[in-house]
């Protein structure tokens, strides 16, 4: 009985061919990690689609139609920019949904990959570098953001909550809003050993932002002294820009400020994450 040959290559100290030290570019490497997440996602995608559809239906139904009727009857449309509450609310919820998707993908999955399943270590033992692992995970997060935000936009249109074709531009903006959360949070999550700080992040970060960053009511309704706090949150920028696109009231200068702010946060998150991933995976 002879074992099947599972060993074929003869070792060589000298790189056999010229360029043996060359490795694929960063995008190719990141795509390998992205595909890992895709294979993983094959088992769970159905459930995530259900909730991506159900969430906007519930929120737009209850708050947009139910609560909205009450608000509209109150005759305060001027403060909402002259539109119904549903039309006002929907783009805000779109940005908030992006935030929620980003937080979900960038907290427990990161800690799980390094602490519980240790799958990051499997990738790190293969040719991928820590930064490739980080970028690949971000790519997958981006894909989830695109999916969820696109579904949200479809539901939103079905509710008749869209005023302008510019709302299509709200898709990349919402995705960017998500990345402005995902990149820094993944950079942070990889440094954790326990998930306790995530609960705090949700309780003291996400929920207050969700409530006070202009999703449900204009920030101008808040006392003047607290408004600057809302303006520095990434969610406010995402909400403001998505809303102005959905209502067709966006102006170039304001839009550029919002995009620039969100891009800067995402870029900082990526720069920091490249370091924190390295520190964690290369002990």
């Amino acid at each position: 009985m002879s074992a099947p040959a599972v060993w074929q290559r003869q070792p060589a100290v000298e790189p056999a061919a010229a360029g043996a030290r060359r490795v694929p570019g960063p995008v190719v490497m990141a795509l390998r990690e992205f595909r890992f997440w895709l294979v993983n996602y094959r088992r769970t995608w159905k459930g995530t689609i259900y909730s991506s559809v159900l969430n906007p239906v519930l929120y737009l139904g209850a708050m947009g139609l139910g609560l909205g009727k009450l608000v509209d009857q109150h005759g305060q449309l001027g403060r909402l920019g002259g539109v119904s509450y549903l039309v006002f609310l929907a783009p805000g919820l779109l940005a908030a949904a992006a935030m929620e998707t980003a937080m979900g993908e960038s907290t427990y999955p990161v800690l799980g990959s390094v602490k519980w399943l240790k799958t990051y270590y499997a990738a790190a033992a293969a040719p991928l570098r820590p930064r490739d692992i980080f970028h690949g995970h971000l790519m997958f997060t981006t894909m989830r953001l695109i999916m969820n935000c696109a579904i949200f936009l479809v539901v939103m249109s079905a509710f008749g909550a869209v005023k302008s074709a510019w709302v299509l531009a709200a898709l990349p903006v919402a995705v960017l809003t998500g990345l402005a959360f995902a990149a820094p949070i993944e950079a942070f999550a990889i440094t954790r050993d326990k998930d306790s700080s995530f609960a705090a992040l949700f309780r003291f970060g996400m929920i207050p932002m969700f409530l006070f960053s202009g999703t449900f009511f204009p920030v101008s309704q808040l006392p003047a002294w607290i408004r600057p706090l809302a303006y520095v949150t990434p969610l406010w920028h995402g909400v403001a820009l998505c809303r102005s696109l959905s209502l067709g009231t966006a102006d170039l200068a304001g839009s550029l400020v919002h995009v620039g702010y969100l891009l800067a946060l995402a870029a900082i998150g990526i720069a920091v994450g490249q370091r924190t991933y390295r520190r964690r995976l290369y002990v």
Binding site: A20, R21, R22, L117, Y121, P127, R129
Partner: peptide, 23 residues
């Protein structure tokens, strides 16, 4: 300097399994 190039030619069985047990 050449981590990825070297690792592409190594096989690694770490002390602790890093299998994806959900797959």
């Amino acid at each position: 300097a050449d981590g990825p190039a070297i690792r592409s030619r190594l096989g690694v069985v770490p002390q602790e399994d890093t299998l994806d047990v959900e797959l």
